[in-house]
Design a binder for these strands. Sequence first.
DNA 1: ATGTTC
Length: 470
Amino acid sequence: MELVQEDRYRFRIVPEGDMRVPGVVFATRDLLADAEKSLTQVADVATLPGIVTASYAMPDIHWGYGFPIGGVAATAIDEGGVVSPGGVGFDISCGVRLLAADCARAEVAPMLEKIMDVLDRSVPRGAGPGGVWRLTGPRQLERLLRGGSRHAVEEGHGEERDLARCEDGGAVPDADADQVGPRARERGLGQVGSLGSANHFMEVQRVAEVYDRHTAEVFGIAEDQVCVMIHCGSRGLGHQICTDHVRAMDKVMARHGIRVPDRQLACTPVDSPEGRAYLGAMAAAANYARANRQLLSDVARRAFARVAGRRLSLVYDVSHNLAKIETHQVDGRPRRLCVHRKGATRAFPPGHPDLPEDLREVGQPVLIPGTMGTASYVLAGVAGGGAFFSTCHGAGRRMSRHEAARKISSRELRNRLERDGIAARPLSWRGLTEEAPEAYKDVGEVVAASEGAGLCRIVARLVPLGVVKG
DNA sequence: ATGTTC
């Protein structure tokens, strides 16, 4: 593979073989060294029918199912462009939500342990069933799959204003519950309003540093303010939908005349029965994930109100695993594209018509979850954003789960978190070692490279005060 | 990520 460095933060994979477009990787030399193996996946994605401009990778790229995590690929819908479940990933619409409390750290510090105890008791998490809602049946599930956060708010779990601060107003249009199979429904029924496990979390954070005061003010955050960050997705429902539709596409791909270098890239044209079926099911899973984050926000709000008498306002809710139909200029004309973002966050620039009016001047908020001992970031979209207005999504693993569990002692980690004043409420301390900071890349390097590559700008850094994990 | 290997 021929990799050409184009500037400090941009590398190009020269097209060869069946590649229809080049690969473009935004990274530093250091970050790239960790990602070398996944560049094959960037090149494989470049062979997909209808792909335009380039197969992109963000600075936090790492190995994924078919597509790399940190990958962005857009296909031209009217030119046979495909949609691929592997380009979204198993955790459909996994994403991040940030809420800002109406107070600074000092005002909450005396109540922090108590708040964490309440969250510990009231946030359903871990593998398997459990959630703040137990659905009455398929009708209610269908309403939730269509309505997302909006449905949760309509049921009394949130404020109308929340929806203005959610990507897509809280619900992806065109969700098709009929394309959600029986197994996905069954798994989904019992997990509404739950965190899940692995790198998902709910954190109480403090704004440690503001880099752009004006933008931070528009977003509703200020230095030393207390925030709550929620990182979770569509649980077993999204996972099952991905599994079901990969299988369905794998079966019919040849009939559509499509050959891919890796079966995990199973895809069909967006404009085909299987493509439409997947996109309908994917939208339903996206709405499930958003309702999930809305309900967990409600849990956090109740804890803050009860223990500290404080309110939480939604800053933003954004997904980092989704395919979307968007219109972008390609080769000088507007084209209807299916933009796959997998481990990549949409980052609309200032002035974009899809942003709520009060945010339009500064650009879309982008929320980057870090690791529990380090930091998380708030970024903003920028004009020119080189990959269909997308940027990074997180730190990315450096050690495998197995390696982390073997190398890191749970007692040592527990002491370290205590020493650093981070009130941790894990389901198991042993499981927490897999999520230790040293098991991840430095999220600061990732956001610096993303900003350097012209994908976004850094607005604020947040550090954890307490963490709830599966 | 995931009833963590149908």
